[in-house]
């Protein structure tokens, strides 16, 4: 058999999804960290199955619990074989996490200029324990973070809602308040949906705003056995 010729095709445009997750000690209570881990796994596996003809969804996970770190560097979702689960523990160094996020966003090697506008997700169940105000402002003021879709989830009554509200920039989607572990899952289902529908059918007449379905209305929340 003669060898088939080779031709180049376009590499898909990256679509970065960056999650800043609170993994401080309090997240270990009431099944929160377990719900978050399950939600992350679901989200990444759904992204992995998405068509890569137009966009390649990339996922980066930053955690802050004890210390801030890059839990999963920004990688193509379909190439993620698996990642270690979040462990809850320690204080809430949110400021350091904001710095990590800003450095990642501004890194033109990791997020080239041809990338689609990133999606930033911040979730927390408590108050920052480090000096967070300056890093927060620097992140929110950075050019790319301003262009990004920023979503926030306040978990439980102790979360710093005012700060989370400042972080979120989608006028149609105020911060989402999770009251239990199941809400964490619902929030990420909505995040997943809002990312994947960017490349699916769109109707400008119908607002494609970020909408978390009401808890009593889980007709669409299908888990197949």
């Amino acid at each position: 058999m003669s060898s088939l010729k080779k031709f180049a095709v376009a590499t898909p445009r990256p679509l970065p999804v960056i999650v800043l997750a609170d993994t401080s000690g309090s997240m270990g209570e009431n099944g929160k960290i377990e719900a978050l881990n399950a939600a992350m796994k679901d989200m990444v596996s759904t992204f992995a199955k998405e068509s890569r003809l137009r966009a390649e969804i990339q996922v980066g996970l930053i955690t802050f619990g004890g210390k801030a770190q890059m839990h999963l560097p920004l990688v193509a979702a379909h190439g993620v074989a698996g990642f270690s689960e979040f462990q809850a523990g320690g204080v809430t160094p949110m400021g350091a996490a904001f710095d990590l996020a800003r450095l990642l966003l501004e890194d033109k090697d990791r997020i080239p200029s041809r990338a689609y506008r990133p999606v930033l997700i911040l979730l927390s169940d408590g108050q920052p324990t480090d000096d967070w105000e300056a890093p927060f402002k620097a992140l929110c003021d950075s050019e790319r973070a301003q262009k990004a879709t920023r979503l926030a989830m306040a978990i439980g009554p102790d979360a710093d809602e005012a700060m989370l509200k400042d972080f979120a920039n989608d006028a149609e989607a105020p911060i989402f308040k999770a009251h239990n572990a199941r809400d964490i899952h619902r929030f990420f289902r909505a995040v997943t949906m809002s990312v994947t529908t960017r490349t699916a059918s769109q109707n400008p007449d119908i607002s494609t705003a970020f909408v978390v379905p009401p808890p009593d209305d889980d007709a669409l929340d299908l888990d197949f056995q």
Binding site: S3, L4, K5, K6, F7, A8, V9, T11, S51, R52, L53
Partner: peptide, 22 residues
């Protein structure tokens, strides 16, 4: 039909040439 395009594109991107198209 997306699958036809994805299989053909993936093969070209992973150095398997036109095998996915064929």
């Amino acid at each position: 039909m997306t699958e036809l395009m994805q299989v053909a594109t993936d093969a070209l991107m992973s150095d398997e040439g036109l095998s996915g198209y064929v």
